[in-house]
Simulated assay, not measured.
Amino acid sequence: MKKSIQPYVLRFISSNTLLSIKRRYYTCARFFKRGVPKLEIFIKVDDPYSFLLVQALPTLEKKYRVTITARVIINSDPVMFPELTMWNKHSINDAMHLANVYHLHFPCSTTEITHQARSVFTASCAVQQKIDEGASWTGIAELLLAYWKGDHIDASSSIDEAALEKRFEAHLHQLSSNGHYLPATIFYDGEWYWGVDRLDHLERRLIDEGYGIQPNPQIGFNKTYASLLQPLNFTQEKEKYSEPLTLFWSARSPYSYIALLQAVKLTTHYGIPIEVKPVLPMMMRGLYVPPKKAIYIFLDTKREAQKLGINYVFLADPLGEGVERC
């Protein structure tokens, strides 16, 4: 019974109708309060995506009528990161790529990260202090750049470290209670936006709600897929491009659905082979997937699929024999 109803429940949860109702509620509430959109940012000093996001905030302030508040966190829920070492290594490589796409700064390579826990805490105190003092986002980004370059950072001698540590924990609790688990996230009226490559969804929403400062503002943070399927001039022997694109694919992951379709388009367009390597879902490997993580991934996949023109309606939840047959 549960499995037969579940696809319809999930379809309703991710429906544009429900999303529109939620947004109208928040818009009406803001109208009566005569307020502007309030973006709540959660950042982590040693998280590369946070560094990139802070660099993007001045652009958002110039383009939209918003107020931005930031909260520093220092810890992460280990349940959310079952392979933290691998995650950290990948996130640095990914951040380097994103920095290049959006012309942001990221000076490190994975071999240069030698920061210790104490330096993370000290830098976190210094960043939170700058935020409390009302420093510009450019100034805060410069402080984060110093951290990532390995420069020595001193927090003010007047700060209460014990009090700040409690605040960092309170910020993490607020992040979790509002339904998320990642740093470098923006919370705006019931919806989450992670990192610079989800800012296009936030920009589109702000534009639709009429918060652009200039007439007809254009979305700027939409370059992640902008060059996909563009003409490519091969300057070397074609044989060197015969290496397959390898896709590690989980039947249970919503991201895998759109990733497979995009990978097929990519390899067809460029004339390269694709090799799909199925992997067992986390739950079949004895790993727990918390509900807040699952629901964010589910809703995020829906908006990404909609952006890419991919049909995303009913959701199956294959485990056991269903996955094995895939």
Rank of each mutant, 00 (worst) to 15 (best):
K166G: 07
K166C: 09
F168H: 04
E169F: 01
E169Y: 01
A170C: 06
A170K: 12
H171M: 06
H171P: 04
L175F: 03
S176F: 01
S177L: 02
S177H: 03
S177A: 05
N178Y: 09
G179Y: 01
H180T: 02
L182F: 05
L182V: 05
P183V: 11
A184L: 05
T185I: 04
T185A: 05
T185V: 05
F187I: 13
G190N: 07
G190R: 08
E191N: 06
W192Y: 05
Y193M: 06
W194P: 00
V196Q: 02
D197H: 13
L199W: 10
L199A: 10
E203G: 02
R205K: 09
L206E: 08
I207P: 07
E209L: 04
G210L: 01
Y211S: 02
G212K: 10
G212D: 11
Q214D: 12
Q214E: 14
P215D: 10
N216C: 01
N216F: 00
P217W: 10
Q218H: 12
Q218M: 09
Q218C: 08
G220P: 00
F221G: 03
N222K: 04
N222E: 07
K223V: 00
K223T: 00
K223P: 00
K223N: 03
T224S: 07
T224G: 03
T224K: 07
Y225Q: 10
A226N: 12
A226G: 08
L229W: 08
L229I: 04
N233R: 14
N233W: 08
F234M: 10
F234T: 09
Q236D: 13
E237H: 11
E239M: 11
Y241G: 10
S242I: 03
E243C: 07
E243K: 15
P244I: 00
P244H: 06
P244G: 01
L245R: 13
L245V: 15
T246S: 12
L247D: 11
L247I: 12
F248S: 09
F248N: 11
W249F: 15
W249Y: 14
S250I: 08
S253P: 04
S253C: 09
P254M: 13
P254D: 04
Y255M: 03
S256P: 08
Y257I: 13
Y257G: 04
A259D: 08
L260R: 03
Q262W: 08
Q262K: 15
A263E: 03
K265L: 00
K265Y: 00
L266E: 12
L266Y: 15
T267P: 09
T267W: 01
T268D: 14
T268M: 05
H269D: 04
Y270C: 00
G271R: 01
P273K: 06
P273L: 01
P273C: 02
I274K: 14
I274D: 12
I274R: 12
E275V: 06
E275Y: 11
V276W: 14
K277N: 12
K277S: 07
P278F: 02
P278G: 03
V279I: 15
L280P: 07
L280R: 15
L280M: 15
L280G: 06
M282R: 00
M282D: 00
M282I: 03
M284Q: 06
R285F: 02
R285E: 07
R285I: 04
Y288K: 03
Y288L: 04
V289D: 05
V289F: 09
P290T: 08
P290R: 05
P291T: 11
K292Q: 13
K292Y: 14
K293I: 13
K293W: 11
I295F: 14
